[in-house]
């Protein structure tokens, strides 16, 4: 199968080919979805080099376990979950550091400035950032995030709630709302 033919296939077809050992088909899946997987890791707080390392490991793991992908969910979501779990394992192996306070958390003053999601996430404390990214970026339910992080469900819910509140202020209203407000 030539490159154009591979590029025209749907993710599920590519995954089926990869299950039969077609590395080129899997390579196409990597090409399509690596930015999303690396993005989730960076939004969880990984620096770009670590995000690349973990994402590569996650794709290699995904290839070796591709027969477990049944196509119930989307392929990128499946790999994101693998990558998120691998990154959390790596974080646990790392020596614990004191968690820095939320960067530039200035409350009302910042609400006017619409910030980029990545900048807004960077200002959250690590645990909140991870909880929010797992639930909104990697498709974990609160219970799954709690089990993966080995935290009580209530704690995860609180982290998500606090994280969302901070993001809401930092991100400000959507552009359309702001335009309406000026009129």
């Amino acid at each position: 199968m030539n490159r154009d033919a591979v590029q025209s296939l749907h993710d599920l077809e590519l995954a089926a080919l990869a299950t039969a050992g077609d590395r080129r088909a899997f390579g196409e899946l990597v090409r399509r979805h690596n930015a999303g997987v690396r993005g989730v890791l960076m939004r969880m707080g990984a620096d770009p080099a670590t995000a690349d390392d973990v994402a590569q490991d996650a794709f290699i793991t995904a290839f070796s376990r591709i027969s477990e992908f049944r196509g119930q969910g989307a392929f990128p979501g499946w790999v994101k979950r693998i990558a998120a779990r691998q990154y959390l394992k790596r974080l646990r192996r790392r020596a614990p550091e004191p968690e820095p306070e939320a960067e530039g958390w200035g409350g009302e003053g910042e609400s006017a400035a619409r910030m980029d999601l990545d900048q807004a996430l960077a200002g959250l404390p690590e645990t909140e950032r991870i909880c929010v990214t797992l639930c909104y970026g990697a498709g974990f339910s609160h219970s799954e995030a709690a089990a993966t992080l080995d935290l009580p469900l209530g704690t995860v819910k609180s982290h998500v709630k606090r994280g969302l509140d901070r993001l809401r202020v930092r991100l400000g209203p959507p552009a359309a709302d702001k335009e309406r407000a000026h009129v």
Binding site: R23, G27, V30, R31, N34, A35, G36, R38, G39, V40, M42, R43, D52, A55, Q56, F59, I60, L117, D118, T133, Y136, G137, L171
Partner: peptide
Amino acid sequence: MFSQPPRLTDPGLFAAQVQ
């Protein structure tokens, strides 16, 4: 917003490394 990945300069290079 989460569904839009950050802009990365080298998605092709990364795929080649995995391959």
